[in-house]
């Protein structure tokens, strides 16, 4: 780990000011990913600004009937919060599918959004990686890429040529937040703004070193859930190499509204397949007004995976994702058990 200075702040404005006064500084909260990356010399901040004492630690109702998750609420406290369990069970279940109890006790909701890929080559400073060192190349495309992306890897504009990066976003929680259409509230030196969840993370394009649309120095203050929580018809299906405490190879978050057997609203978000949680409005629209049948689910799955590209070791994910979508939709519509 490189040497750095440490400061602790008690209010948001000071934190943002301190962060902007030193370009190479970083905020630290749970630290579960940042400290690990610092040990590997992947992250080398010159100063850590401890934000754990900022007043962003509560879950409160919003004026429009939703729920506001303070950025510093831990993943565990969010998953076991009575309001979250009752109104947003998809989110609770999804958080509990990730990491371990120890990590969920440390990791914060804001930090969950900002965790970085677990691509082996991103972590290994001896290998080229466009995300870690822009322009150095991607070791995963022709390397061991079993855990890597199958969607949204094209470089900018033309869509032609070699992808710059095939890393995936590792979060489970973010897959549910994408399906729920949460909003991310941030504060910077230029004031506050709100970012729709779909616009928060980005595809790699030609700048895979940039994970999200935060401006330099901006601080996440809360994640706002809309009133609609899909408490009745939902499912999170996570497929991985062991039954617990592993990142997803493929995961699917489904949220539905039904009128009898007919689907009236459908949200499907995929994890483990792209640089961000993957949604496709056309695939969701295809289910509206249709009965919940395997054939209709299959058609949606085909649309969601249209254009998917494998890189050898991860090509299996294309078929795996389609089958996972069909099963998760079946679970959400209560056609099959969730076990």
């Amino acid at each position: 780990m490189n040497s750095f200075t440490y400061t602790r702040t008690e209010d948001v404005d000071t934190a943002v000011l301190e962060r902007s006064s030193e370009q190479t500084s970083k905020f630290i909260a749970g630290g579960t990913n940042l400290i690990d990356l610092m040990k590997e010399n992947v992250e080398r901040p010159t100063r850590l600004i401890d934000i754990t004492h900022l007043p962003l630690t509560s879950i409160t109702d919003t004026v429009n009937g939703g729920l506001r998750l303070g950025a510093l609420v831990t993943n565990a406290d969010t998953a076991y919060n009575e309001q979250v369990i009752q109104r947003y069970p998809l989110l609770s279940q999804t958080i509990l599918a990730g990491a371990s109890p120890q990590l969920r006790n440390m990791a914060t909701d804001g930090g969950n959004l900002l965790q970085r890929t677990r691509c082996y080559y991103f972590y290994d400073t001896a290998t080229p990686c466009n995300k870690r060192e822009p322009g150095s190349g991607c070791s995963a495309i022709n390397g061991f890429n079993r855990i890597h992306a199958i969607l949204g890897t094209a470089p900018d504009n033309s869509g032609l040529g070699q992808p710059q990066c095939i890393a995936t976003h590792p979060s489970d929680m973010c897959v549910a937040l994408a399906a729920l259409e949460a909003e991310v509230r941030v504060t910077g030196i230029n004031g506050e703004r709100t970012i729709p969840f779909a616009d928060f993370h980005r595809l790699p394009g030609n700048t895979p070193n940039i994970d999200n649309t935060l401006e330099p120095g901006e601080l996440i203050t809360s994640i706002d859930l809309p009133a609609k929580g899909f408490p009745k018809y939902y499912a999170y299906l996570k497929l991985r190499d062991r039954a617990s405490y592993a990142f997803a190879l493929v995961s699917v978050a489904v949220a539905l509204e039904m009128d009898g057997d007919t689907i009236t609203t459908a949200r499907i978000a995929l994890g483990g397949v792209a640089h961000k949680p993957w949604r496709k409005p056309e695939a969701e629209a295809k289910l509206i007004g249709k009965p919940a049948t395997k054939e209709n689910f299959q058609a949606a799955a085909e649309l969601l995976l249209a254009g998917a590209q494998g890189f050898g070791h991860n090509t299996f994910k294309i078929e795996l994702a389609k089958r996972a979508i069909v099963r998760a939709l079946g679970q959400a519509a209560k056609l099959e058990p969730t076990a």
Binding site: G31, T32, D50, M106
Partner: peptide
């Protein structure tokens, strides 16, 4: 609450 002490800074 249980945590991983390897991923926490003592100063925090």
């Amino acid at each position: 609450k249980r945590i991983n002490s390897c991923l926490s800074l003592a100063i925090m």
